[in-house]
Design a protein around this nucleic acid. Sequence first.
DNA 1: TCAAAGGGTCACATTGATGTGAAGGTCAAG
DNA 2: CTTGACCTTCACATCAATGTGACCCTTTGA
Lengths: 142, 142
Amino acid sequence: MRIGELADRTGTPRRLLRYYEEQGLIVPGRSPNGYRDYHEGYVDRVLQIRGLLDSGLPTRVIKQLLPCLHSKPRAIHITDPTPETIATLERELERISERIQCLVRSRDAIADYLETTRRSQQPAAVAAAGSGATARYETAGV
Amino acid sequence: MRIGELADRTGTPRRLLRYYEEQGLIVPGRSPNGYRDYHEGYVDRVLQIRGLLDSGLPTRVIKQLLPCLHSKPRAIHITDPTPETIATLERELERISERIQCLVRSRDAIADYLETTRRSQQPAAVAAAGSGATARYETAGV
DNA sequence: TCAAAGGGTCACATTGATGTGAAGGTCAAG
DNA sequence: CTTGACCTTCACATCAATGTGACCCTTTGA
């Protein structure tokens, strides 16, 4: 597919798709006429990149993580990682875990807050008007 | 305490403490001489702010979340939130949950990758040299 | 009393992720 | 053959979070 379709399907401006490529996060092929050519897998890939970017990881780090994030088949890892790569991954694993903890704490605090607020509100009105705006957060599924 | 001590205790440059104040995230008192005066609670507060910033939340959003993140005592919430505030919080709750999911997926993928790599490595050498660099990640505690 | 350490404001620089527009090539449809 | 939609590169602009330095004041200790 060409850049426009990928942009539509991922909700990502073309500009950014080119930027991600410039940063080495994606490496599309080229049609004879010079147009970028993306295969199907880039949809998920781009969504994952955006998710990580939103979560505060810089492109530089995401680039290092990407090889791990695509060993879908438990196959042999093509590029056998160097010890430095492994060390980097371990550091990032730790940092990501910290971020998760921080976000989880905040999520739970917000959820508690909303829950408490909701309780202390007049329950009748809530029952009448609230069912459409009910927050759904699971403490379980993480 | 003054800004220098807070900076030391949180590992945060003074410049940024002033910046967070400028953004309304913290509101220190002032000594008679004009120096900023922080109470003990700001240590945790600043750490939390930094954690959220690292996790990709902009100061604008953090500012809105802070009221929830400090209802330590299940007390009455001083400023009873407006419906708009609640709606904002619910949206943010959702976005934070998405980030968590994204990070958790990545964390697990990296952990798997490391685990697999470690297994496929010559186990003898690993047993000999690896015990000091063992990655510790818990899928449980989240 | 003087120096050093720390505090204050102001302001400009930088970096990473983006927005936006100019100038031009490709291609399908009318 | 022309128009419009899509693509290309290049380049400058923006925004938030930071770095950094200038310049001056306050406190403390030798």
